[in-house]
């Protein structure tokens, strides 16, 4: 994660985002590393359950969320099939 991504996701003020981005331009670190480095100089959102997990895990979480929606779609299709069957009869 680069510094721009970290500041955008963690509630930095415009001033603090400017400062952090200028100080750490071009560096790539994990969420935890950024958190450790920046917390002494900047005030930003306290890490919560979602934001405190690695980015890769977040992506996995999103995928899981998407998957959980799919059964509902399936149910909708089933209903449509039933309607068409009713018409035929």
């Amino acid at each position: 994660m680069n510094i721009e991504q970290f500041t955008q996701r963690n509630g930095f003020t415009q001033r603090d985002a400017f400062a952090a981005c200028r100080m750490y331009k071009g560096q790539d670190r994990s969420f935890g590393e950024w958190n450790e480095i920046l917390k002494k100089d900047f005030t930003f959102n306290s890490p919560n359950i979602i934001s405190s997990v690695p980015v890769e895990t977040k992506i996995e979480n999103t995928k899981i969320k998407e998957n959980t929606i799919e059964p509902a779609k399936t149910t909708e299709k089933v209903k449509l099939v039933k309607k068409s069957q009713t018409k035929k009869t």
Binding site: R15, F18, A19, A20, M23, D41
Partner: peptide
């Protein structure tokens, strides 16, 4: 010189 306070200060004097 390139620390957080100076960089915040730069933003403040030019933007805020």
């Amino acid at each position: 010189a390139k620390g957080a306070n100076n960089t915040k200060l730069l933003y403040h004097i030019t933007q805020q």
